[in-house]
Design a protein around this nucleic acid. Structure first.
Lengths: 242, 242
DNA sequence: CACAGACTTGACCATCCGATCAATTGTGGT
DNA sequence: ACCACAATTGATCGGATGGTCAAGTCTGTG
């Protein structure tokens, strides 16, 4: 019997290559992966509470009991899926490069995020579900890792602004806008498809989407376009409004 | 025994003021409302599967059995919450007015949506959860009511573009961007607060957020600012990208 | 070949939770 | 005061489901 991570968000998962006399079989590793894939698909569609452990097992092609041999509990599995997906999900943000020109950096970031929304919508939905429920399993990671990562990029954006290479625009809101607009096409794919009849899988639609996002976001932060007194009318920040 | 709506998405709920000999007591009506409020709070936080019917009863201040006297099943209650909230949620979109000047109309819409995200974040999360899971209970309504509403507004936006009062910008994407950016601050409030330390409840933060959104979206569609050749570098729509 | 330990299985348990029922209390109208 | 019906309650059922157990089978290594 060899069991793995459980509840603890800081779980170290397997690690220990000191191997307990004999390590995990190739078949075992393959099963673990298949389980994680199936679990991602299920959790992203129906959430933690909505998915039955048996459905995941079915998707992975093994029995419920056998699945529980690899992951001691549904929570442990959920956590494993979460951590496995997180790195991939944050990769594009990490890749924003101080050495590159701001326009290229932001343009690449937006494109990468939109491509991720197209290629891994389940990952997007998984995190969206988790965060929307208050991130009960992820709050620690968010408050440390993500915070640090974002702080760094915010500083970079500020520097670019100070150098006059970006228009003044709150860096946090810039990031939020990018996240929101790109992930929207993954998280609300159902709605998008019902209203437009298209999906990001359609290259033409992808390109139109990309251009629409680039137009509004780059237009707001790149200095070549005169600011134009866009904000003029009364604020009325509290009105529910007609 | 008087029971109400059940599964059917097209449920007519109570209606019938023809009263079966004696209508519902004032206390009864009040209870119904309290249940719906409590249910909204719970469903928005933990989703349909994640909330126990007893938690809602507790939040509403009555017993589980008593709650089931007012709503014959958890699904019926969920559906009732959904439909009760939908009207309020779509109101700002309906209010986009052909008679108004495009700038004012869009600015008002964005402000109203952001205010709604601030004042009714649970509503936002409720629909987000529902749509993200494929809108199992709402797909019918979305495909008809919402579709019709959106089609109308898209036509209006197109007209404005044809008249030169808006820059060419796919109307669907414009709406999606507005929805995504405003609702993000409700749906991902946890994350936003962890990263910025602020909430929409803070008037200064609300105003900064509003300005950031207006700047990018209005900047992209209002004609006073020269387009500027923002989209120039290679598309590479498929690259995952470094 | 033998054996240790990874892998797999089917039967089973315990509990949670949505829902029903029978019975009681409260209340507005006549 | 009485009655019909709304409102409320506690007991209880039954199905679903997460998780355990004991008993295997398979496989690489000594």
């Amino acid at each position: 019997m060899r069991h793995f991570a459980d509840e603890a968000p800081a779980a170290a998962l397997e690690s220990d290559t000191v191997s307990p006399v004999r390590a995990m079989t190739a078949a075992g590793e393959a099963n673990r992966e298949r389980i994680l894939d199936a679990a991602l698909a299920c959790f992203a569609r129906t959430g933690l509470n909505g998915t039955r452990i048996e459905a995941i097992a079915l998707g992975a092609g093994l029995s419920k009991t056998n699945l529980l041999y690899y992951f001691r509990s549904k929570n442990a599995l959920y956590l494993a899926v979460l951590t496995r997906t997180l790195d991939m999900w944050l990769e594009p943000l990490r890749a924003i490069d101080a050495d590159r020109d701001p326009r290229a950096a932001l343009s690449h970031y937006i494109t990468a995020k939109l491509a991720a929304a197209r290629d891994h919508p389940e990952a997007s939905r998984l995190f969206a579900l988790e965060v929307m429920q208050g991130a009960p399993m992820l709050s620690a990671v968010l408050a440390t890792d993500l915070k640090a990562l974002v702080d760094g990029k915010v500083a970079l954006l500020r520097r670019w602004q100070d150098e006059g290479r970006l228009k003044p625009h709150d860096p946090h809101h810039l990031l939020f806008q990018i996240w929101a607009t790109t992930q929207h096409y993954a998280d609300f794919a159902t709605q998008v498809e019902q209203l437009t009849g298209a999906t990001l899988a359609d290259p033409a639609f992808f390109e139109r989407t990309r251009e629409a996002i680039l137009a509004s976001i780059l237009g707001a932060v790149l200095p070549e376009c005169a600011p134009a007194a866009i904000l003029r009318q009364p604020a009325s920040p509290s009105a529910r409004e007609p």
